[in-house]
Design a protein around this nucleic acid. Structure first.
Length: 274
DNA sequence: CCTTGAACCTGCGGGC
DNA sequence: TGCCCGCAGGTTCAAG
């Protein structure tokens, strides 16, 4: 389950639980994911050790001792769980990796919008899934100046713009709504019509809302490891997301829901004006 | 180039 | 109880 903070939390959990382990077996129960699982995954991955876990956008990159990355994306409904022994097989479990010490990792994804694939380490930056991604929101490349510069000629809504992974990665439907609320910007505002302060607020609040969520995910990391992965992604409290007709946490006005690009947007019509 | 809409897939909850 | 609808955290691709 995916927005950047959840993916980051999963990566942190994996770092604590599988680095150094040797893969002894791979079981592919369902190869038809967003991209088909490579047919040679078993021969490439078995007998390799997990060296490290990295994240790029919402992709989990597991580096292996043979200069390959195992790339995992969780899509809308994916989970990557680690068990200390062999877990019982559940519906929508699509891949199992078994380790030398008896532990196992499971990729579980009812909707199959996620993916598991392989990439040679030296060409990882040029991999088609990663090559055209924009900046990471938690690095210094992401700033008000960057937003203002890249959006100055764009008339699309600011919500659509910040969810565009060619611009900035990792801002999904929840955190787009939350960062616009904190910035007091209406989601339908044209991207090129924000003033300088609004670009500053937005850049700052995108960073903040993601960092807050990572911190709160991190606080459950102990549980994550102990219980093999179920963090409870909707543990956070949101100011606007999913709160249609409930009252604004600032001014008590009823939160509105509208559709943008086929997806729900939530905002306070009083705090967030066009 | 841009914008819009649909597509991929399963499950859940509400209305009738 | 069943059926149909809309909804869900993402991403890509085709059409206009």
């Amino acid at each position: 389950m995916p927005e950047l903070p959840e993916v980051e939390t999963v990566c942190q959990g994996l770092r604590q639980s599988i680095i150094g382990k040797k893969i002894t077996h791979v079981d592919v129960l369902q190869p038809k994911l967003r991209i088909n699982v490579p047919e040679d995954i078993e021969e490439i991955v078995t007998q390799q050790r997990i060296l490290d876990i990295e994240r790029r956008a919402k992709y989990i990159l597991i580096s292996l001792s043979n200069q390959y990355y195992l790339m995992v994306h969780l899509g809308m409904s994916g989970k990557l769980l680690v068990h200390t022994g062999m877990p019982e097989r559940k519906k929508h479990d699509h891949l199992y990796w078994e380790f030398e010490d008896g532990a196992a990792m499971v990729f579980h994804d009812p909707r199959r919008f996620g993916l598991v694939t392989l990439a040679a380490s030296e060409q990882i930056a040029h991999h088609p899934l990663l090559a055209h991604l924009g900046v990471e929101p938690l690095t210094n490349d992401f700033s008000a100046a960057y937003l203002q510069q890249t959006l100055k000629n764009k008339s699309c809504s600011i919500k659509q713009a910040i969810m565009d992974s060619k611009l900035v990665v990792g801002v999904g439907n929840i955190y787009a709504a939350e960062s616009l609320f904190r910035s007091r910007i209406h989601p339908e505002t044209p991207s090129n019509k924000l003033n300088t302060k609004q670009y500053e607020d937005l850049a700052e609040h995108i960073r903040q809302v993601l960092q807050d969520a990572i911190a709160s995910g991190g606080s459950t990391l102990r549980d994550y490891v102990r219980s093999s992965g179920d963090v409870g992604y909707f543990q956070h409290h949101f100011d606007v997301y999913g709160r249609e007709d409930e009252s604004c946490t600032i001014c008590k006005t009823k939160i509105k829901r509208i559709k943008q690009q086929g997806r729900s947007s939530f905002f306070c019509p009083k705090c967030q004006r066009k």
